[in-house]
Design a protein around this nucleic acid. Structure first.
Lengths: 222, 222
DNA sequence: ACGGAACTTTGTGCTGGCTCAAACTTCGGG
DNA sequence: CCCGAAGTTTGAGCCAGCACAAAGTTCCGT
């Protein structure tokens, strides 16, 4: 068994306040796992059995409407906890989590949640901050969807992705995982056709540069 | 000073697991207050100084877009906590809370949050369940806004209101607080014109019955 | 009673973005 | 190298819902 290094967790908010032996103990209880692109970590409505920490990669959180179409609720960047249904008193997962690229995760059984929360000071406080951020983000999404025009929505979605997972590159900031026009349309509640047209237009204006499943934003405006 | 009765809290989730002396202690720390229709309890972006319990009435939670238009994020029914920013590690309120009708609240200073959470068993667990529900509700809102047609959105918004605050009445279920077409349009991201047309159509079909600032749903379908 | 404010209804055109459709490009496998 | 699958682009037409506009209704204060 290859032991995991303590440094993996020491910089991540919920664990930041813990000392090395505590981190050691937590790590020894974790199950590491690798997911390929498109594989799902857990599924909407399933019994919540574990909660996870994303070590590397990007996770796409998806919900399916009764009508059958899927929409992307949010993306999770490396270093964040996800599948934290138990923290909100849920027994099933409210959405599906799918690897948007190759992903490395650590998983713990849900029953350890309360253990962690009571034994490790600051763990729950820090975690709920993350929840708070996500709530805020969702709130903002609602406002955008309700009031803004499609162009703005797509622009904002892109901006959000760049902020969360962007990596600085020669002529701008690139999004670090494969993303298609269809994905963007799922995030913004439009069609891939419209997204395609917008991206073409922006490319003409020199705002973005996109190749197949890959986008670079050159100009962080608009 | 008129003492508040313990029975006020004993049936409300976060306090349900507490015994009478504990409830007494909590009540003695609370500041009761009455709000008239249209008065705001707290304002978006303001320092979060207190958190609240709604004893009676309905609270409308509102956010304002940079563009200036307001949208209604959710309604809070009697018996729920609100303004629970501190629980999510926030120092400012993320939205404005406004009385949708006459309201009675209890308020506590935020610093008591952590006290309550650590001293009273079950308090935080129960509270986070509420947060979980709200997150779920917001999630659903996002999906609706992103995928459904205006008619569905308005119908769902109405259904949600009826579920949360509906009261059974002679020929259907009525919404217990004043609500205008403009309010509904703020919830669904449309114009009051469209809402008005839809309600007229539904009234013709005998699904709803509406008078000025007052709606009764006769037929819980569609 | 009266007048005004708040709310609601209804009409008319216009348009953003969806649907339908088809061709094109890139990638990976055989 | 060729082929099919996946992803992207572009075009054309159409319609739900918005903007603009104006009149009708209910409530409330004086």
């Amino acid at each position: 068994m290859n032991r995991l290094d303590e440094s993996l967790l020491s910089d991540i908010p919920p664990f930041r306040l813990l000392d090395r032996p505590q981190i050691r103990a937590i790590l020894d209880l974790a199950t590491p796992r690798r997911f390929d692109e498109g594989q799902s970590v857990f599924t909407e409505g399933a019994q919540a059995e574990r909660f996870y920490l994303l070590l590397d990669g990007v996770i796409r959180v998806i919900r399916t409407t009764p009508g059958g179409d899927e929409i992307i609720v949010l993306h999770i960047a490396a270093g964040q906890l996800f599948g934290i249904a138990p923290a909100l008193g849920r027994v099933t997962y409210p959405a599906t989590a799918m690897a948007a690229g190759e992903c490395l995760t650590l998983g713990w059984p849900v029953r350890m949640w309360s253990e962690f929360a009571s034994n490790y000071d600051g763990f729950s406080t820090e975690t709920y901050k993350v929840v708070g951020q996500r709530v805020g983000e969702m709130n903002t999404r609602i406002m955008e969807l309700a009031t803004q025009a499609v162009e703005q929505r797509v622009a904002n979605a892109l901006a959000r992705l760049v902020n969360q997972t962007g990596r600085k590159v020669e002529n701008g900031i690139e999004i670090t995982f494969p993303i298609t026009r269809a994905n963007i349309s799922d995030m913004t509640g439009t069609t891939l056709h419209t997204v395609s047209r917008l991206l073409s237009a922006w490319e003409k204006d020199g705002i973005v540069k996109s190749t197949r499943r890959h986008i670079v934003v050159t100009n962080p405006h608009q």
